[in-house]
């Protein structure tokens, strides 16, 4: 897995240490700590994992093993507007795959990656529980229901002028 190089500021290291301490540096709380860390950094670069490992007294390899096991954790920064396409069964039978293909085609990035300008990233998720609105797409926290292939460019247009 590739990772972005990044040097943590002292204040950021301190932040991570505080998180770890808030969970009593208990190795069993590793996943909770990683959730918090990802909330702050938006992703979990290697450097963050190193600090977390040190604070939680587990090996870096183990932290990496956990991070790469769970799809919620990412080592790549997401776009400013992360696009998630629901590919749960209900959305799938109502055409989610075509919608996904359209996003990939228009943004020219595969699933799991971010556009060069850092604006959009595409991920798939499994069922957001809005099956009545299938197929469902989320951009950030905003949910779009009954999305058609045509509708894809309209969704992207909403974010066009924003910098």
């Amino acid at each position: 897995m590739t990772s972005i190089k990044l040097k943590l500021k002292d204040s950021e290291v301190q932040q991570l240490k505080d998180i770890a301490r808030s969970f009593n540096n208990e190795p069993g709380e590793l996943i909770n700590v990683l959730h918090k860390a990802q909330e702050i950094f938006g992703y979990l670069p290697a450097e963050v994992q190193e600090v977390v490992a040190g604070e939680m007294n587990v090996s870096v390899a183990k932290v990496y093993g956990v991070v790469t096991f769970y799809s919620f954790f990412t080592m790549l920064p997401r776009g400013r507007y992360p696009i998630s396409i629901c590919t749960g069964t209900a959305c799938y039978v109502r055409g989610a795959e075509k919608v996904l293909d359209e996003f990939k085609r228009l943004l020219k990035v595969p699933v799991g990656e971010t556009t060069e300008d850092g604006k959009f990233s595409i991920t798939c998720l499994r069922c957001v529980g809005a099956c009545g609105l299938a197929p469902v797409v989320m951009v950030g926290d905003k949910t779009y229901g009954r999305v058609t292939t045509d509708g894809v460019k309209d969704i992207l247009k909403e974010y066009e002028d924003e910098v």
């Binding site: 290697a46 490992a53 090996s59 390899a61 183990k62 093993g65 096991f69």
Partner: peptide, 18 residues
């Protein structure tokens, strides 16, 4: 603690951190 199972499914393998 150098080796750990990493990734999952078909991509799962034993490897050092990162």
């Amino acid at each position: 603690g150098v080796l750990s199972g990493v990734n999952r499914g078909f991509e799962a393998v034993v490897a050092p951190a990162f």
